[in-house]
Nucleic acid binder design. Sequence first.
DNA 1: GGCGTACTATGACATTTGTCAGCTTCTTGG
DNA 2: CCAAGAAGCTGACAAATGTCATAGTACGCC
Lengths: 230, 230
Amino acid sequence: MENSRCENCIIRQFNSLRAMSKEELKKVSDSKTTKTIKKGEPLFEEGEKLNGVFCVRNGVSKLSKLSANGKDQIVKLATKGEVIGQRSVIAEESANLSAIAVSDMELCFIPKESINTTLQSNPNFTLEVLRHMAHDLKEADDVIVNMSQKTVKQRVAEAFLYLKNNFGEDEDGFLTLTLSREDISNVVGTATESAIRIISEFKKKGLIHTSGKKIGIQDEKKLQELVDGF
Amino acid sequence: MENSRCENCIIRQFNSLRAMSKEELKKVSDSKTTKTIKKGEPLFEEGEKLNGVFCVRNGVSKLSKLSANGKDQIVKLATKGEVIGQRSVIAEESANLSAIAVSDMELCFIPKESINTTLQSNPNFTLEVLRHMAHDLKEADDVIVNMSQKTVKQRVAEAFLYLKNNFGEDEDGFLTLTLSREDISNVVGTATESAIRIISEFKKKGLIHTSGKKIGIQDEKKLQELVDGF
DNA sequence: GGCGTACTATGACATTTGTCAGCTTCTTGG
DNA sequence: CCAAGAAGCTGACAAATGTCATAGTACGCC
């Protein structure tokens, strides 16, 4: 694959790898491998030992955890530029979450040795990773509050706005990232039927429009008001 | 206060400060101040700019966030040995959560300059902080799953087991950390009345016993079964 | 082009949880 | 020691959400 040297990779600008030195990047680039993962296939599963991290070049992965009642809860959606699996590698634990592609993906796999060596020697890189993790932690705290204090309807509305802000819309005004109804319900933390019902309601009220699985936002303002509790 | 030099502080063994060098600790110790906070008083409030971090020597603080519906959600309980506020200092953001003492507290305030200097120069320290944050992030992810997939009853049961495992019991078999019913409901993410009702039910079923606000665990096994969904 | 499977949709109903109202019991300050 | 406010408790009811059943729809595969 051309242009596949980390030193030249634009993606890198968006994640902590930008704090690496030229030499460190060179080593990473030599040790990395490129992977293609099809929609629906796993990058890794909960409980698995990770031998490195994944840097997303293209596509989207859901990070989810199976709960006792047999339902998956999607904790995060990771996209272009994000690094997946760093938490487990840093804590030297097996994966707490499963990572499954929700669209075809292209990613680089970086062995943990490259990461660990740099973590121990380059404080700038470590600090950069730390800042990213601090950000993730804040987001996780916010999700906790939303989950426990907002209604399902509010969370569905919020999910749509999130999808628009983070993945954008296509030329026809539909959300670029199309999730199945089940995935939506797993993001929101509710039964699939409940999510579908709310989608129908939003459609009737003119807040969104749909075409097959695709969803488009029609009245962003009202959706936002709903999220904020009027 | 005697024995108040960081170099001699036992508390330090439990948190990332243990990765500091002798000289760094000396500087921290010279710049730190000791504070006493009474039960119910805030360490800081959501949105406030933090000029440093708090190292807990004694007592417990709740970290919570106010949601749009006017209810507090308690995201974490921090106790002896834990460092509060590091996320905000590292991300250079204002506090995302409020910290309020749930028992009388004794803590050290460490100005952010001491922290930031060490973060930039001592990779061991940075890595140690990173590991702690990775652990917090995992816990937060687990809370998200619990919040969205478990019933209120399961979460209440889990909260009691958590309180026992993390704060212990007194000689009479009551949980050492006594929370108000409202705080319990804010941990669990439910209405106060719902929490009270479930406490009554657990009492009737012989899972717990109470005396005033104090709660004691009677049948840990059954509580655990409840959490796991029978 | 049609068949089968998986996804979407909707109704009916059960269960869980929240809200409001009123009462009781602590706790605290004067 | 008493008064008053806060916290705990309970019932009745409403609202939100989950579950089960069933039917329609899309889509890949042969």
